[in-house]
Computed example of a mutant assay.
Amino acid sequence: MTHARTLPIRLAPHPGEALDSWWEAIAHRLGTTTGDVLASIGLLPRSPSKPVSSGVLGRLVTLLGTDQAAAIAWSAGATETEVHAMTLARYDGRAHVVDPQRRRVAARHVWGRPRGSHYCPACLAENSGRWLLRWRLGWSFACLDHHILLVDTCPRCSRMPRHFPATTRHPITPGRCHSPSEKDTPPARCGQPFEEVPALTLAAQGSVIAAQKLIEEAISRGRADFGVYQDHPQPSLALFGDLRALACILLRRSLTPTGWRASSPRRSWRCTSSPYRTSGGPSTRRGDPSGTPGPAAGRDRRPRRQRGPAHPRAGRCPPGRSRPSPPDQRRRRHHPAQGRAPVGPHQPGIRRDPPRDAGSPAQTQ
């Protein structure tokens, strides 16, 4: 960490704002780049020509050290408590688990994508493009203020926002997509205004809003004491583990007759591939007379010796080739000192030795 100095213009963080959104708003207010702001705070070295690794910025948003939080608070005019509250460590032990050594969220507690952020277009339009921290949680799917379903992709570049950290070498505009765009020539940043993205409106008294309220309440309190947990309250991490298991069961059952989900075949492969049997539906193996043409229903992950015959000729040798000999006979054939197995006309799997001359040493012995 380099030497820090106070910023000439200070900007108060928005309630519930993420740390990277805050320093982007400060950079936009100062008319400079985020790299200059982070270098002034002391979080990055003063080398604007050298690109910054995305892992460095991701670790800063996940967990801050004591010295880093103190430098940010001294330079930007915020308290250390406010600075720590803008990182994902705020939800450590309640919505996920943060690895303090690697400074990243443990993958086993993540539901959905480990990187990126959802967003509410109405919220971004009201707060001048300030991103909330709770949008990064996999369990955040609805906005309780505007009663709309959170959006997870950019309609122009089809990428999830915040999946790639914003550039630190060029000025950026809050509230616009910073993902690399392949539609522009030459390639540039997408620049899609997020406040113009349409979103699905939800019923204020509907089940989706009610479920989001229960989840946010469990995260804020750190425990679940409603429904089946009323008599025996459980930690919020146990609640999310149960929800994750229940969601996987529902995803397996919400399949088309061919065993694939029509919406996302790539995700359905991960959810429908059972470790010991294929998913429901007719068999579609090649050569199966009872199957119907189409994509495979799922891969059979059982050991080969436990699988049933998938073809009428399963277990037979191809035409023109003989069945391999048993292990004991194969061992004796390759090791003549242990004795040679008798060869008869009814053992086609044993290869006969070539005839020897009468005067050879082997014949005389």
Rank of each mutant, 00 (worst) to 15 (best):
H178C: 10
A362P: 15
G77S: 12
R156E: 12
P282S: 09
R286C: 12
T272C: 12
G287R: 06
K50T: 15
G42F: 13
R330H: 08
D99Q: 02
L144V: 07
G138L: 07
P180R: 07
L57M: 11
R134H: 15
R103T: 02
P165Y: 11
V97C: 02
P174S: 04
S322N: 05
L124Q: 04
R304G: 12
F226L: 09
W74I: 01
P293F: 12
D288C: 00
M1A: 06
H84S: 01
S263Q: 07
G55L: 08
W23C: 01
R189Q: 15
D92H: 11
A238H: 12
L63Q: 03
A89L: 01
L64T: 09
P336K: 00
W111I: 11
L30G: 02
A122T: 10
L255M: 11
A238R: 15
P326E: 11
P354K: 10
D152F: 02
G291D: 05
E217H: 01
A71Y: 14
W269M: 06
W135K: 01
P324K: 05
T66E: 13
D152Y: 09
A73N: 05
A4W: 13
P257M: 04
T62K: 00
R332L: 04
A204E: 12
T167H: 10
Q347I: 09
L30Y: 08
D328P: 04
A188I: 08
S181P: 09
M160H: 13
S181M: 02
H311N: 04
R5Y: 15
I215C: 03
P100M: 08
G339E: 05
L200Y: 13
V151R: 04
A107G: 07
P45G: 09
G359N: 14
M1T: 15
P114Q: 13
L7A: 00
S181C: 14
D184N: 01
S207N: 13
A296P: 06
G349K: 03
T168I: 01
V97Q: 04
A210R: 14
R313V: 08
S268K: 00
K183Q: 14
L132C: 01
T34K: 03
G349M: 01
S283Q: 13
S268A: 12
W23L: 03
P355C: 10
T2S: 10
P361H: 07
W131L: 01
T284V: 01
A262Y: 14
E216M: 08
F240G: 00
G58P: 11
H14V: 10
H163Y: 13
P45N: 12
I249K: 06
R113Y: 11
D184V: 13
I350G: 03
T32P: 10
E195N: 05
R159I: 12
D20H: 12
L43D: 07
A142T: 13
P171E: 05
